[in-house]
């Protein structure tokens, strides 16, 4: 077993587990988007960032879903550095996918009260869960990434239905973003308003729908 320290607590984990899994085992909440149990880890969305302390005042941010546990590792899951980076990342995600309920709820949980970046709706966060599902679970590989940079998309080749597709619908089912749209009429500062958490309230009174995704954690700020 490997011994490491997460948020000041010494824990033991089997070799090959990730920091995310070890932390979740302890009941620590780390938000995720591109991670899905059973699929390979990809490290795209960066909302599961944690701080890895390297000593001599140095540390780095790492995606916990792709970080294997190591002997003597020291991990902080909710340091100021982590929180700041996660918030900016979620803001960036919202700026490209404002109609996603998952993202709106996540923003609300983090106490984000404004998206400060230009909103360019694209309706996909390119987390690649569908791509990995299709390839790894369905052994099909009909969809994939094309283009690069901001032109990157998840598509089929030349826009045709691929030969490999068996119409399983798994790609839609596993999507963390388009699964359910945010029902708000309009966005204020990039946020839907339904879950808006302008004053860091402990529990949100106006909120109805998102309690489902928030679950038992209520409005704990990540």
């Amino acid at each position: 077993m490997i011994e490491l320290t997460i948020d000041g607590t010494k824990v033991r984990a089997a070799p090959g587990t990730t920091v995310l899994e070890a932390a979740r085992e302890m009941g620590i909440v780390i938000p995720t988007l591109c991670y899905y149990p059973g699929l390979s880890s990809y490290g795209e969305c960066r909302v599961c960032l944690v701080e890895m302390v390297k000593g001599r005042g140095r540390s780095s941010l790492e995606a916990s879903c792709a970080l294997p546990v190591e002997q003597g590792q020291v991990i902080l899951t909710s340091s100021a550095k982590v929180k700041k980076a996660r918030r900016v990342v979620v803001e960036l995600l919202l700026a490209s996918c404002p109609s996603s309920k998952t993202l709106q709820c996540m923003a609300s949980n983090m106490g984000i009260n404004q998206v400060r970046f230009k909103i360019k709706p694209r309706e996909c966060i390119l987390c690649g869960r569908c791509v990995r599902y299709c390839k790894e679970q369905m052994r099909s590989g009909g969809i994939g990434f094309t283009g690069r940079g901001t032109a990157r998309r998840v598509t089929t080749a030349f826009g045709h239905t691929p030969e490999e597709c068996r119409n399983c619908g798994g790609c839609q089912w596993i999507c963390p973003v388009c699964e359910r749209a945010c029902t708000a009429d309009s966005l204020v500062n990039g946020l839907c308003g339904g879950c808006q958490n302008l004053a860091h309230v402990e529990t949100c009174e106006i909120c109805t729908g998102c309690s489902e995704s928030v679950g038992a954690h209520g409005h704990t700020v990540y």
Binding site: S140, G141, G142, I143, G144, F145, T146, G147, R148, T155, T156, A157, F158, P162, E163, E164
Partner: peptide, 10 residues
């Protein structure tokens, strides 16, 4: 799968 070739090409 064609998508892999297409992905590289784009």
């Amino acid at each position: 799968p064609l998508i892999q070739v297409y992905g590289v090409a784009t």
